[in-house]
Nucleic acid binder design. Structure first.
Length: 422
RNA sequence: GGAGACGUCGCAUAGUCUGGCCUAGUGCACCACCCUGCUAAGGUGGAGUCCCGAAUUUCGGGACCGAGGGUUCAAAUCCCUCCGUCUCCGCCA
């Protein structure tokens, strides 16, 4: 949720932000109107309620024989209170709907426009040159017995797979490498719930734009999470947290579920785009002042991971229209995929400023004993199953084996390459 | 899944049967001040969260007793639904 006070004092800020996103600019004026009428009806109700409360005390103090008369007198007032309360509640709900139509304020430096309007921040590493015809990750995986796509489809349908043998071990190695890096960086490791209640899913902002991407369990009215960001953001919901010792940094390990609705026919081959995968996610609660610097730190940790597994990549600054409703700025890192001759997203880090925290009621005290204020939340990817695609393709060798980057070897029994025999 | 108990201001508890002096009491912890040359102490006052409205340190009003409904002039208190915790039984990859 946006800062309503800022909306009142500086609505142009929000109009401009909505415009940059290609979003609904009229939502700003709708919210302003709804706010005004909500305050009017709230004052009406509270004035009447105050009268009623005062009267209630009179009734309580009055001698028995006078009570009946007083009660008769106040009956009409009670009715008015009830009606005013109803109006106030309706206005409150309308306001809440209107204000939810406004997405997070886009930060300075975010390019305007849609999916293709990102800017490239930097490219790192060299594209591999092969003196043989490189195979795509599916061919490599089949050759080395790393995953079983056919049986995945047989058991669970399209976009499901089994990781097998060294494939399973490679994923665990990657996630453990990421976890160890996170721990070294001061993150608290977490294994999170992957089923959450509606208010948590709502609070993170995923239900607005990505609702058809999310699995819903009808029998229980709960959601499967597409990232542990959801559970980690909900972790401190409705709490006043202590940030005096610095940011709270969590590293969430979880399976992620995505319906991939609307991507039919896209990336159907292999494990690039799947309904279920594993991920290690960084999530940070910090002060609004710290958020910008923390975002750069998260990006830095992501790049460290990419460098550890020796992948060529670029960093892009996502355009406003491609941001989630909660994000004020987002950087993706994309690894080079040789057989596609293009970059594909491996990580994504968002600065949600105070937007998510407002919705989820997460606050801190800027000054000891002072008033509370919403915290800033940020998230970023450290490793996912998808990374296997880039690792396999970039590190494949002429003999059909895949070289294991040095950083991963300790997690794979020390082997230097995955071969059909290993 | 069945039966029962419980959910109150940071923690621990009173209040619920019998609705209204509950503006939710008390203890501990906390903060300020006072007293005591040290120490467990003693005294006075303060202290929660959220919203609205005036005023440049503040004041007034409202909401919150797990959540949401209902009854009533009036609900922590009575009724219903849901959620959570605990105990017992049943079931269990």
């Amino acid at each position: 949720m946006i800062d309503v006070e800022l909306l009142r004092t500086n609505p142009d800020l929000f109009r401009e932000s909505q415009r940059a996103r290609g979003g609904d600019v009229t939502a700003v004026d709708q919210a302003l109107e709804a706010d005004a009428s909500r305050r009017v009806s709230l004052t009406e109700f509270e004035t009447l309620r105050a009268q009623q409360n005062a009267f209630g005390k009179q009734v309580a103090r009055a001698p028995k024989d006078e009570k009946a008369a007083l009660v008769a007198q106040v009956r009409e007032l009670a009715d008015q209170v009830k009606q005013a309360e109803g109006r106030a509640r309706t206005a409150e709900e309308q306001f809440s709907v209107a204000v939810r139509g406004i997405q997070n304020l886009v930060l300075e430096g975010v390019p305007e426009g849609g999916e293709d309007d990102f800017t490239v921040e930097r490219e790192v590493g060299e594209h591999p040159r092969f003196d043989f015809e490189p195979k795509d990750h599916v061919a490599i995986g089949e050759h080395l017995g790393l995953f079983d796509l056919e049986r995945g489809a047989k058991v669970s349908g399209a976009r499901f797979y089994y990781l097998t043998g060294w494939g399973a071990r490679l994923e665990l190695a990657l996630l453990n490498l990421a976890l160890d890096q996170a721990i070294a960086g001061g993150f608290t490791p977490m294994i999170t719930p992957t089923i959450v209640n509606p208010e948590i899913m709502q609070g993170t902002g995923f239900l607005d734009q990505h609702s058809d991407e999310i699995y819903h369990l009808d029998a229980d009215d709960q959601y499967l999470t597409g990232t542990s960001e959801v559970a980690l953001a909900g972790y401190h919901s409705d709490e006043i947290i202590d940030l005096t010792a610095g940011p709270k940094r969590y590293a969430g390990w979880s399976t992620c579920y995505r319906r991939e609705a609307g991507s039919h026919g896209k990336d159907t081959r292999g494990i690039l785009r799947v309904h279920q995968f594993n991920k290690l996610e960084m999530f940070v609660y910090t002060t609004p002042e710290q958020a910008l610097a923390e975002h750069q730190r998260l990006l830095g940790w992501e790049e460290q991971m990419l460098q550890k597994v020796e992948l060529p990549y670029r960093v892009i600054n996502t355009a406003a229209g491609d941001l989630g409703s909660s994000a004020a700025q987002k950087f993706d890192t994309e690894a080079w995929i040789p057989t596609q001759q293009t970059y594909r997203e491996l990580t994504s880090t968002s600065n949600c400023t105070t937007y998510q925290a407002r919705r989820l009621g997460i606050r801190y005290r800027p000054e000891e004993g002072g008033k509370t204020a919403p915290v800033a939340t940020l998230n970023g990817t450290l490793a996912t199953t998808r990374w296997l695609v880039a690792i396999l393709e970039n590190h494949q060798q002429a003999d059909g084996s895949v070289r294991v980057p040095a950083a991963l070897r300790p997690y794979l029994g020390g082997i230097e390459a995955i071969t059909p025999e290993s």
